[in-house]
Simulated assay, not measured.
Amino acid sequence: MNENELFFRNIQSGNIENIGFQLDKNPNLANIKDGRGFTPLIFATYFGQPDIAKLLIERGADVNAQDASGNTALIGVSFKGNKDLVDLLLDSNADVDVQNKNGTTALIFATQYNQKAIVETLLNHKANTSIKDNEGKIALDYAKEKGFEAIAALLK
């Protein structure tokens, strides 16, 4: 197993001590990409590792880096509903309006997955409610389609 593979394995398993040692030896690890285009930060947030995500950001991880599908860490955690990670990313200057290759934003994903607390947080950080995805829909369209009335009310 090479250094990069070991680094991602340590992230997945939550081995923050080894991650710190690896970053001490090679600071560039904070922004490498795996075979799917995941950065360590995207990987850490995907696996719900807030302490590792914070360490990676402190060590220079690009909070707005995108994977092969154009997703950022913020887009990923917005549909999973992890508010602590959303807050960490937004407090670390994550761009709230990045669109992936399908034109989907964090706000659209949070809406599609009925993540009301995340929608509120994104709106408090000035998420643009008029951004359309590749289907020509905005977040409000999805809220109405799915019958998420509380989220629709927030988006109006």
Rank of each mutant, 00 (worst) to 15 (best):
L122V: 05
L122G: 05
L122P: 07
L122Y: 08
L123R: 10
L123Q: 12
L123Y: 07
L123F: 10
N124R: 15
N124T: 09
N124G: 11
N124V: 05
H125R: 13
H125K: 15
H125I: 03
H125P: 12
K126T: 08
K126V: 05
K126G: 04
K126F: 07
K126I: 05
A127G: 09
A127W: 15
A127M: 15
N128L: 07
N128H: 06
N128T: 04
N128G: 05
N128W: 06
N128K: 09
T129H: 00
T129M: 04
T129G: 01
T129A: 01
T129R: 08
T129N: 03
T129K: 15
S130C: 04
S130Y: 09
I131W: 05
I131V: 09
K132V: 01
K132P: 04
K132N: 04
K132T: 02
K132W: 03
K132E: 12
K132F: 01
D133S: 00
D133E: 08
D133H: 02
D133V: 00
D133P: 08
D133N: 15
N134A: 10
N134C: 07
N134E: 15
N134M: 11
N134L: 10
E135L: 08
E135H: 06
E135C: 01
G136L: 01
G136H: 02
G136E: 04
G136M: 00
K137M: 00
K137F: 01
K137D: 03
K137E: 02
I138Q: 04
I138T: 02
I138G: 00
I138L: 02
A139E: 11
L140F: 03
L140G: 02
L140T: 00
L140I: 05
L140A: 03
D141C: 00
D141R: 01
D141A: 00
Y142C: 05
Y142P: 14
Y142Q: 09
Y142V: 03
Y142S: 04
Y142K: 06
Y142R: 07
Y142I: 03
A143Q: 13
A143Y: 11
A143T: 08
A143S: 12
A143R: 13
K144S: 03
K144A: 02
K144Q: 13
E145M: 12
E145C: 04
K146R: 14
K146W: 08
K146E: 12
G147L: 15
G147D: 08
G147F: 10
G147Y: 11
F148E: 11
F148R: 09
E149N: 13
E149M: 05
E149C: 02
E149Y: 01
E149S: 09
E149W: 03
E149I: 03
A150I: 11
A150E: 15
A150M: 10
A150Y: 10
I151W: 06
A152R: 09
A152S: 13
A152K: 08
A153D: 11
A153G: 09
L154P: 06
L154C: 07
L155P: 13
L155N: 09
L155H: 08
K156D: 09
K156T: 10
K156N: 13
K156A: 07
